[in-house]
Simulated scan of single mutants.
Amino acid sequence: MDGIDGAVAVVTGAASGVGRAVALDLARHGARIAAVDIDPEGLAQTVRSLEGGGLALAGDVTDTGGVEALFDQVEAELGPVALVVNAAGTLATGPLAECSDQDWHRMLAVNATGVLVIGREVARRMGPRGRGSLITVASNAAGVPRANMAAYAATKAAAVALTKSLGLELAPLGVRCNVVSPGSTDTPMLRAMTPDPQALVTGDPAHFKVGIPLGRLGQPEDVAAAVRFLASDAARHITMHELYVDGGATLR
Rank of each mutant, 00 (worst) to 15 (best):
I4D: 01
I4P: 04
G6I: 04
V8K: 13
A9F: 07
A15C: 11
L26C: 04
R28V: 00
R32K: 13
A34C: 04
A35E: 03
I38D: 05
I38N: 10
D39E: 01
V47M: 01
V47W: 10
R48Q: 11
S49Q: 14
A58G: 15
G59K: 13
G65K: 12
F71G: 03
D72F: 04
E75I: 06
L78N: 08
L83A: 12
V84Q: 02
G89E: 05
L91D: 14
A92I: 09
A92M: 09
A92G: 09
T93C: 13
A97K: 08
C99P: 13
D103C: 10
M107Y: 07
M107H: 05
M107N: 02
A109Q: 08
V110Q: 04
A112V: 01
T113V: 12
G119K: 09
R124N: 09
R125I: 11
G127F: 06
G132H: 07
G132Y: 02
S133H: 07
T136F: 00
T136D: 01
A142N: 04
P145I: 12
M149A: 13
A153D: 01
S165C: 11
L166Q: 06
L170C: 13
P172N: 13
G174K: 14
R176G: 04
C177P: 06
S184C: 14
T185I: 03
T187D: 03
M189W: 11
M193S: 10
T194L: 02
P197F: 09
Q198H: 10
Q198V: 12
V201K: 01
G203A: 07
H207E: 09
F208E: 15
K209R: 10
V210C: 13
L214G: 05
T239C: 02
E242R: 10
E242L: 04
Y244V: 01
Y244H: 10
V245Y: 00
D246N: 08
R252P: 02
